[in-house]
Amino acid sequence: MTQARKQFILALEAVTKSFDGFKAIHDLTFYMDEGELRVVIGPNGAGKSTMLDLITGRTRPDRGRIEFGRDIDLTRLNEWQINRLGIGRKFQTPSVYTDHTVFENIWLSLEGARGILDCLFARVDSAQKDRIHDLLSTVGLQERAATKAGSLSHGQKQWLEIGMLLAQNPKLLLVDEPAAGMTDEETHKTGELLLSLAGKHSILVIEHDMTFVRQIARQVTVLHQGSVLCEGTVDEVQADEKVIEVYLGRGKRHPPTTNEP
């Protein structure tokens, strides 16, 4: 295990986090290879978002280790420090700067210096301009560069946020329900985008939409009550007794079938 660890981009070991006695994450151990595209599924309250919170420094674990790349301890860093290491996060609800133009949104997210002085005297140079326009065409928003982000449609905001994430050129992308609120066509395009990024970047996707999961996933991890229930391909996971028990045992909520919207 120790030898294999060298190539992990992300390692969570025996992580526990509780809120007011409720164990959101319980003894969670999770590894991700460099360049991997991993999908995490699980019923509501399984601890998926809390897991992302722990990785990105939004909350700190009560116990356990979270390491990024070669021995960088994430539990001691805060959000912006973690981001600067190359971990980007897309939130579940689109979070863009509504009062800024699409162009400005991307500019603010572009990798590079982020200090106060840098910001006071920064100018958009032509290389940056080209990069921004490239990114905008990747996410299909080049026509809307001068539009205020607040007036975009829900799907466009999702795309813009993905664009902002790409602008950071992160080593690890954490994507929380990217397909939420998208049309089928948009969802499919998102899937293709994520697939094209895999390899260059490591990507961790949290998703409910099984059609989408099936489209993108090679390896799926199922979370339940704050720890890993099982791992495997989509087919393996869907056939797993425990997984069916967890989803069906909880009533009608989100059985992991491909027919789910």
């Binding site: 990105t56 981001n83 979070s95 700067y97 009062d99 800024h100 200090g115 106060i116 006071l120 005297f121």
Partner: peptide, 28 residues
């Protein structure tokens, strides 16, 4: 009109996003 101004207003509208974009919002 500077990028600083953009960050400033971004903090006002969505501080978490700024924080998760690598800006030390508390310094700003």
């Amino acid at each position: 009109r500077t990028k600083f101004g953009l960050v400033q207003r971004a903090i006002r509208d969505s501080e978490n996003r700024v924080l998760f974009s690598g800006y030390a919002t508390s310094h700003f």
